[in-house]
Write a protein that binds this DNA or RNA. Sequence first.
DNA 1: ATACCTATTGAACGACCGTTAGGCTACCGG
DNA 2: CCGGTAGCCTAACGGTCGTTCAATAGGTAT
Lengths: 211, 211
Amino acid sequence: MATLAPVTPKGDAVASDRILRAATALFCERGYHGTSVRTLARELRLETASLYYHFHSKQEILFAILDRTLDDLLDGLRRAVAAADGAESQLRAAVRFHVVFHARRRQEAFVSHSELRSLTPANLRRVIAKRDQYEDVFRGLLTAGIRGGVFQVPDVKLTAAAILSMCTGVATWFSEGGRLAPEAIAGRYVEVISKSLDARSVDRRGKGPRS
Amino acid sequence: MATLAPVTPKGDAVASDRILRAATALFCERGYHGTSVRTLARELRLETASLYYHFHSKQEILFAILDRTLDDLLDGLRRAVAAADGAESQLRAAVRFHVVFHARRRQEAFVSHSELRSLTPANLRRVIAKRDQYEDVFRGLLTAGIRGGVFQVPDVKLTAAAILSMCTGVATWFSEGGRLAPEAIAGRYVEVISKSLDARSVDRRGKGPRS
DNA sequence: ATACCTATTGAACGACCGTTAGGCTACCGG
DNA sequence: CCGGTAGCCTAACGGTCGTTCAATAGGTAT
């Protein structure tokens, strides 16, 4: 069925990209189920039916957004890590990349984790597979840092989840015209996370009597 | 309009609570717009129309969930803070409470921040006002700790956002039958956050050559 | 028995949903 | 000048949406 249908064609990336950009903004703002294809079409000054020339379904639009975003995330993360040496520097680079991405490409990043539940089971599986690869990079860096003696982390999985939650949260509140630029935020996050992982520091705290 | 309509009555909390519990589970799983009132009614073994005896609208159900959850959060936080002494202990108590709440009452907590965008503007305003109060407690504790010399934090607003993102994220991945109990997770989060805020530690790091 | 109140029901309302079929234009290679 | 096709259109399909309304059953107090 894909051979005769000119859906999602090769050379013409401009039209479907325009659709994906508008869909990303709307899905981010109102959610997938809260956005009708008519609303999306109106935003693009198109008729509803025209969208179906470029995509087979609304679901395919959502999947395309998430799939592309995950690809860019994974690719960017690997580049960032490859450009650094040693577990500590690499983790710092990874955190920096993650935060900057979630600020600069806030809408895509936000949709990519808020609309997971709106994916078809089959599509969800494919996206989750990529997300797992992404998280494994972080877990691997933590493990390497522990073995190298630079990190002191009682629970790698928990710590990775905590770090990623914190950094992903940037996509929730970041505002483009806001007080802080993506790089500034990333810098602070890198420092906070480095400090909390640092093996060189008293961990049994000799101070607070309670909790 | 509220006087003649027996909607959301006084003594009978059991029926509307049952509705709210089922709605919370469904909104958590599929989202507000992804859940129809027919689906909710079927889950409760009721007819669709019966729901409208207890609530005026689907929107009112959503608002009730968020409003109650925010009340419980704010109340619990204030109790936790009041039971501790000093900014550091109080912040640890606050973090502990926040994490345990987001694990134990995961669905409510998740819906309360994922479905903000599905609220009516008027309802959103009311919920946001409570959320701001909640976040202000954390910002206040950070500020107090800085003044007391126990915390070293370059940016209170940013740090509060980072801490809350991290702790709120627990509601995204926590699983009841999972490896870690809510208290165990909270304990780790408390340690990580305390360590990252600690004023007594080298902050200009003399080690890593690159960021 | 009567009157009232709580809780629920079946049936329907108009609006909107995602999707499709088929036709119209404009351009492009021959 | 002509066939093909990329891109968009109008119109409509069956279905589901949130919501309403009159009717009904059971309980309790008078």
